[in-house]
């Protein structure tokens, strides 16, 4: 630990804010992928969530409502994806790309009037008494609602996937849709729900960016975080706990780039900004080295279309 606890706490706090959107987006995509659906449109859904929640908070000033609106925007985008890939059997890869291109364009269009608008950011909810503990208090008990939410989301998803009947059905659908169908499970319905859950999480991740992380609207403000979240799911070999670890690792790297100059790393800012992207590649390579581990954990039916009469 650092000699000066306040500096340590400050850096740790920025790591948490950088990691939170990644936790949401990656957890949502993890659930989607465990049901056998690969949605590459995370970036587009995040941007939709970011712009719509910011627009709402700008118009109404109502933060809880704005978070709901951001979530809803993610769900609507995911519904579009689900309709094309699940109901119309379109290619998941191509549709996901389309969702990202569409979300980028639409959010830029909607956000046109929001550039330069200020917002004070989501209020911090301090837990009484506990938040006064030195070091630990500010680290764990003085956050906005979404940070707490992200901490609850991981164990909740892990519990759902591994300990409940619903989770078992979802995994069955993701591993073998034909077998699940033969057992009488509604493959398409399960996949729709998992896809919508992913959309809701990505929408929240976007809302976090524009309402707490920045807080403002900038065109294309997710800056590849949706794609990093997709890589995180592979890094985590589809296990919720590892998503949390990976997101905080990436949060740390993002912060390194912000504080690099301060700690005395004298590298041009553009080169420092490459770090998260290069790290993503390195991490993908490292995880892919153990192909057996990836193959054992990857949902077996991922990316495959399902049509009951074939």
């Amino acid at each position: 630990m650092s000699d000066d606890p306040s500096t340590f706490v400050l850096i740790a706090l920025t790591v948490i804010t950088a990691a939170t959107p990644l936790v949401f987006a990656a957890m949502g995509e993890l659930v989607t992928e465990r049901s056998g659906v690969l949605n590459l449109g995370v970036e587009g859904m995040m941007l939709a969530g970011a712009v719509s929640s910011f627009l709402c908070v700008h118009l109404t000033g109502n933060a809880p409502l704005s978070l709901l609106v951001g979530t809803a925007a993610g769900i609507v985008m995911a519904l579009l994806f689900g309709f094309l890939t699940l109901s119309l059997q379109a290619s998941q890869v191509a549709t996901g790309l389309a969702l990202t291109i569409f979300g980028t364009g639409l959010s830029a269009l909607v956000g046109q009037s929001l550039i330069g608008v200020a917002y004070e950011g989501l209020p911090k909810l301090s837990v009484p008494v506990l938040s006064d503990i030195p070091t630990l208090g500010p680290l764990l008990f003085q956050h906005d609602v979404l940070v707490y939410g992200s901490w609850l989301l991981v164990p909740a998803v892990a519990y759902f996937l591994n300990r409940t009947r619903g989770g078992l059905v979802l995994r069955a659908v993701g591993d073998s849709h034909d077998a699940a169908h033969a057992l009488g499970y509604r493959v398409i319905r399960v996949r729709y729900l998992a896809t919508l859950f992913g959309g809701a999480c990505s929408g929240l991740a976007g809302a976090y960016l524009s309402m707490a992380y920045a807080p403002m609207w900038v065109e294309n403000m997710s800056a590849g975080r949706g794609w990093i979240a997709l890589a995180l799911v592979v890094f985590a070999v589809w296990q919720p706990g590892w998503v949390l670890f990976g997101a905080y690792l990436f949060g740390g790297i993002t912060i390194l780039q912000l504080h690099g100059q301060g700690i005395g790393i004298n590298v041009p800012s553009q080169l420092m900004s490459m770090l998260p992207y290069i790290t993503t590649i390195v991490v993908l390579v490292l995880i892919s080295l153990d192909q057996g581990r990836v193959r054992r954990n990857a949902p077996a039916a991922i990316g495959q279309a399902f049509h009951p009469t074939t």
């Binding site: 389309a98 291109i101 569409f102 980028t104």
Partner: peptide, 13 residues
Amino acid sequence: LAVTGVFQGMLLF
């Protein structure tokens, strides 16, 4: 200018 992106995305959909 963002309208172009919206058009392109819609076309692909």
